[in-house]
């Protein structure tokens, strides 16, 4: 007598569960594609105390592939990776950056002056660790007017 109701209830329970789990599993699979951590260099790393970078200097940090500038307005970090094929660019005081591989030129702010580099050099955000060390975050792109004051 109650069979149709019971059947409907069982059927809808089954369908809801299956659909929910299927969506969940799909979601979990999608989530699986972006792992919590990777075996790769960290995107936030300390580079030393601000005093190690005297005012008015540009310091090349080869292990992190970036230049750290300290000018009167504050600190800023520019990637040394050429946006063309990834060579380390060279800094020329007063002129900007030059890539030794294919001759790309960038101005002091890392903007392309002439190719083949398609894009300007990346700028990274800075912060200060509790132990007063400058910390670079390569996942925090910033605009060329960015300056970090200690």
């Amino acid at each position: 007598m109650n069979d149709p109701t019971r059947r409907r209830f069982l059927f809808s329970t089954g369908v809801t569960s299956v659909v929910l789990s299927a969506c969940g599993f799909l979601g979990a699979t999608a989530r699986y594609l972006s792992p919590n951590v990777l075996y790769e260099p960290p995107h936030r790393f300390p580079i030393g105390s601000p005093e190690e970078f005297p005012p008015g200097t540009a310091t090349f940090l080869p292990e992190h592939r970036l230049f750290l500038f300290n000018n009167p307005a504050g600190f800023y970090a520019i990637s040394s990776v050429c946006t063309h094929l990834g060579c380390n660019v060279r800094h020329i005081v007063g002129e900007g950056f030059a890539c030794p591989c294919h001759g790309s030129r960038f101005d002091e702010n890392g903007q392309v002056v002439h190719g083949p580099a398609p894009e300007p050099l990346a700028w990274f955000g800075l912060s200060l660790s509790p132990r007063r060390e400058l910390v670079v975050n390569t996942r925090q792109p910033v605009q060329p007017e960015y300056r970090f004051r200690v």
Binding site: R6, R7, L10, F11, T13, G14, V15, T16, S17, V18, L20, S21, A22, G24
Partner: peptide
């Protein structure tokens, strides 16, 4: 229907 529902709930639980 019962088996279907139990299976579905199991999936959901997992």
């Amino acid at each position: 229907h019962l088996a279907f529902a139990v299976l579905g709930v199991t999936f959901l639980a997992i």
